[in-house]
Structure formats: structure tokens, C-alpha cells
Amino acid sequence: MLFPRIICFLPLLALARSDPVETNSAAICEFFQHVRAFQEDWWDDSVVAMRTMLQEMIVALEPYPEYEEYRKTMQDYVEQGRTIVKSSRLEDKVAFVQGFNERGDQPVLTGSPAKKQALTRPLDNFKSNMIFKVLTEFHKKLLKAADDVERVVRFPDNSPKDELFRLLEKYRRSGIGSLTEDIASRILALKDKYQCA
């Protein structure tokens, strides 16, 4: 991701003296826009990481003729993925990142520990990159956006927080992990409830 997205809630803070319902609606709708942008960044970064992993694996397999068919399969998949660009549909990005693993035609790695290590290194690098870069970046941005929207949104006295804010509290408590992967979709699924465009 070349340019980090900047969250700016200053216009919302200016609304603090206006009607609380309007202020809440504007802040929540803006929050949804940011989450959608974070989700797009997530999948853009995932596509780049997947391409890098496949290219590294293709290079790692070159010395081993017994994996030639699998290497060609990877090369074909990389070629298909070249059509996936930043402006591609989100569904196409998700399909590219998840599609290769769903094919189920991975070979069994045999040979020396050094050979197995060389062939699994690209996958290990991919997993580390996804955890330490993509997941962590998404997590930080979402927590910042959640903090910002919670500073602006006001609930009537004695009213419980609604579903969105309960979900954000659960996310905050769970930290980076399995919930990180589907949090954007779960949050965006609530968008219609708030009548946001």
C-alpha cells in the first residue's frame, strides 16, 4: 500500500452541537466508508503477497524436475492473476487469493530437510507477511477508526450500545486473530441497518 488512508473526523466533531441523531448517523456512515476502504487495502495487499509467494515458489521449484507439472500450474495461476489490479472488483481479488489453495493439487514434498525447507520457505514468508503486515495494518486502522467514531457518537442516557459498538468491543478484546479476518464483512453487513449509502 503506497499511500496510507487518512481518517479525518474533524467535520464530524464540528457537528457535535447539532442534532445528536444526525451526528450519529453521519459519523457511523463515515466509519462504514473507512472500513470498506480498509477492506479494499486488505485485499490489495493480499493479492500482492500471494503473487510474491507464487513467484518465489516457482523459483524454488525450478531445480526439481519431479515438480515440473506443479510449477507450470503455479505459473499459469500467476498469469491469470496478472489481470487482478487495484481497480478490480473485490470479489475477483478474494477469488484470486483464496482460489489457488482451494484447487487441492499441491504435491507431497519429499526429500532432505534442506529441500523441504527451501520449498516451504515461500509459504512461510507469505504467512508471516499476512500476519505482521496485512493483518496488523488492518487491525491498527480499524481500531483507530473505532476510537474516532466512538468519540463522536452519543447514546441517550441509560441506553445500551447497539450491535455495531458491541461488535467493536468484542473485536478490541479479541485482538489480532481469526476475528480479524472477517471483521470488515461483519461490520459492513450492518451498513443497511444504519441506512448508509
Score class of each variant (00 low, 15 high):
167 L>I: 09
50 M>R: 14
169 E>W: 06
115 K>Y: 05
127 K>G: 08
56 E>S: 04
20 P>F: 03
166 R>W: 05
169 E>R: 09
169 E>G: 04
175 G>R: 03
91 E>Q: 07
184 A>I: 04
16 A>L: 07
120 T>V: 09
77 Y>M: 10
195 Q>P: 00
174 S>F: 01
133 K>A: 06
36 R>E: 15
61 L>S: 01
126 F>V: 05
159 S>M: 10
26 A>G: 01
85 V>P: 02
92 D>H: 10
68 E>M: 03
16 A>C: 12
193 K>Q: 13
164 L>Q: 01
121 R>A: 10
148 D>T: 04
80 Q>F: 14
123 L>H: 07
100 F>G: 03
70 Y>A: 03
33 Q>T: 10
145 A>F: 09
4 P>C: 12
164 L>A: 02
35 V>K: 00
127 K>W: 00
147 D>C: 03
30 E>T: 07
86 K>R: 12
91 E>S: 14
22 E>T: 08
107 P>V: 10
25 S>T: 12
144 K>P: 02
80 Q>N: 12
126 F>Y: 11
22 E>Y: 09
42 W>K: 11
30 E>W: 02
2 L>F: 15
118 A>L: 04
125 N>Q: 14
185 S>R: 12
103 R>P: 00
101 N>L: 10
79 E>P: 00
162 D>C: 06
125 N>E: 13
78 V>C: 03
196 C>I: 07
14 A>S: 11
139 H>F: 14
40 E>N: 15
160 P>H: 10
23 T>L: 06
23 T>W: 01
99 G>K: 02
174 S>E: 13
166 R>V: 08
23 T>V: 09
42 W>T: 12
34 H>L: 10
107 P>Y: 07
98 Q>K: 13
3 F>H: 11
111 G>C: 07
45 D>V: 01
32 F>P: 02
176 I>A: 03
167 L>M: 13
100 F>Y: 05
175 G>M: 06
77 Y>G: 00
129 N>T: 13
14 A>C: 09
23 T>H: 00
89 R>Q: 15
5 R>C: 14
98 Q>D: 02
129 N>L: 13
9 F>Q: 12
143 L>D: 04
191 K>S: 13
196 C>S: 11
126 F>A: 04
134 V>D: 00
23 T>F: 02
24 N>Q: 10
63 P>M: 07
90 L>G: 15
13 L>N: 10
63 P>N: 09
107 P>S: 07
3 F>R: 11
77 Y>T: 02
66 E>L: 09
96 F>A: 00
30 E>Y: 12
93 K>N: 11
14 A>N: 08
58 I>W: 01
171 Y>K: 03
102 E>W: 09
136 T>N: 11
93 K>H: 06
183 I>N: 08
140 K>F: 13
112 S>T: 15
185 S>W: 00
163 E>W: 11
124 D>R: 14
85 V>G: 06
153 V>D: 07
126 F>D: 03
134 V>P: 05
116 K>M: 14
19 D>A: 05
58 I>V: 12
37 A>S: 15
10 L>C: 13
185 S>E: 12
153 V>W: 05
56 E>W: 01
68 E>K: 08
59 V>F: 07
149 V>M: 08
46 S>K: 07
184 A>R: 03
32 F>M: 06
130 M>F: 08
25 S>K: 13
16 A>G: 10
28 I>E: 08
176 I>Q: 04
64 Y>G: 00
177 G>A: 04
39 Q>F: 02
5 R>D: 15
119 L>K: 03
117 Q>A: 14
30 E>C: 01
103 R>I: 03
